Simulated assay, not measured.
Amino acid sequence: MGKIVLENIKLFGFHGCMPEEKYVGSHYTVNLEIEFDLYQASINDDLSKTINYIDLYSIVKEEMDINSKLIEHLAQRIIKRIKKYNKPLIKYTKIKICKENPPLQGNIDRVCVILDNSDC
């Protein structure tokens, strides 16, 4: 078993329940972890035996461009798309999405949601 981890993907999106979030938008940080058997890729040096992290990034970016009220919903959509992308190979998926500088009446850096495929 092994993992591909995409750390600190920086994207901009328009997610949230407050009206201003739909117009002003926010910065987001996404961390994605995919667990699967890396053995064949490691001995064959063959891209077809692994999961292309460029494809994973594209899925995250495309889903980020679709507005959601909740980042929980966004996280679930991303996990479902990744599972559909290569279901037989993937054993476990975990995603953490953080909204940077959320519109709260207080001093807070970010609000994050963590979801894994056992939740989906």
Rank of each mutant, 00 (worst) to 15 (best):
M1S: 13
M1L: 13
G2P: 03
I4R: 07
V5C: 05
E7R: 08
N8Q: 13
N8I: 02
I9N: 02
I9W: 10
I9L: 15
I9S: 12
K10R: 13
K10H: 15
L11N: 04
L11Q: 09
G13P: 01
G13F: 04
G13S: 02
F14K: 05
F14P: 03
H15I: 01
E20L: 09
K22H: 08
V24W: 07
V24D: 08
V24H: 11
V24Y: 12
S26Q: 11
H27T: 10
H27R: 12
H27V: 02
Y28D: 05
Y28W: 07
T29L: 08
T29H: 01
V30D: 00
N31M: 04
N31R: 01
L32P: 02
L32I: 12
E33M: 14
I34C: 02
E35Q: 15
E35W: 06
F36Q: 10
D37V: 11
L38P: 05
Y39R: 08
Y39V: 10
A41D: 06
A41M: 09
D45M: 11
L47P: 00
S48Y: 13
K49E: 14
T50F: 11
I51E: 07
N52P: 11
Y53P: 04
Y57F: 14
V60W: 07
K61N: 12
D65H: 13
D65R: 13
I66S: 02
S68R: 07
K69H: 07
L70M: 14
E72T: 08
E72I: 00
H73S: 14
A75C: 14
R77C: 08
R77N: 13
I78N: 02
I78F: 13
I78E: 05
I79S: 07
I79C: 03
K80H: 12
K80G: 02
R81P: 06
R81K: 14
R81T: 03
K84A: 14
Y85T: 00
N86L: 06
P88K: 14
L89Q: 15
L89A: 15
I90C: 06
I90N: 00
K91T: 15
T93Y: 06
T93K: 04
I97Y: 00
K99A: 02
E100N: 08
E100Y: 09
E100T: 02
L104Q: 09
Q105Y: 12
N107A: 10
N107M: 11
I108W: 09
D109Y: 08
R110C: 05
R110T: 04
R110P: 03
R110H: 12
R110D: 06
V111D: 03
V111Y: 05
V111E: 03
C112L: 06
C112Q: 01
V113D: 10
I114R: 10
L115N: 05
D116Q: 07
N117T: 11
S118C: 11
D119V: 06
D119G: 09
C120I: 15
C120G: 12
C120A: 12
